[in-house]
């Protein structure tokens, strides 16, 4: 007859090991270099073509009139799915994804990248 507790030696081994998780606000894991976090927009490189808002799957990127007489992309992170399609489609590399991932905020409309 097979006895229960085939895993017991491993289980006891784990008691003396350090936890796998970290205490988040005190300790932080560094995200990998390629993480798709909050985007950065370089207005000086933008040619106002609107491809980013055309291809945005979630409607986070819209063309709005902010300064000057040409529309520029505005990113609402409440809608963003962080697929980085805008970064890929941009012909002048005006959009850049950073590794910033702590984007919690209190109200709608607070997390907007211009």
């Amino acid at each position: 007859m097979k006895m229960p507790g085939k895993m017991l030696p491993k289980i006891f081994g784990f008691i003396f090991k350090k936890p796998v998780t970290v205490l988040y606000p005190k300790e932080r894991l560094t995200p990998p270099k390629g993480l798709r976090g909050k985007m950065k927009f370089h207005l000086e490189r933008c040619i106002h073509c609107g491809l980013c808002s055309h291809d945005c799957p979630s409607g986070a990127c819209t063309m709005q009139l902010i300064t000057g007489d040409k529309k520029q992309p505005v990113f609402d992170l409440d809608f963003c799915t962080f697929c980085a399609q805008c970064e890929e489609v941009c012909p002048k590399d005006a959009i850049e994804m950073t590794t910033e991932f702590e984007l919690a905020h209190y109200k709608r409309g607070e997390a907007i990248v211009k």
């Binding site: 895993m7 491993k10 289980i11 796998v20 995200p31 990998p32 390629g34 993480l35 798709r36 799915t81 962080f82 697929c83 980085a84 399609q85 994804m97």
Partner: peptide
């Protein structure tokens, strides 16, 4: 539940690879 904890701990390694390559853990884009 011991098995649950063990396998999900190992699964995390696979997800780390996916995040490392693609930049996202779940929907890799």
């Amino acid at each position: 539940d011991t098995l649950f904890m063990y396998t999900w701990q190992d699964r995390e390694l696979v997800q780390d690879i996916l995040e490392f390559i693609s930049g996202n853990r779940v929907n890799y884009a």
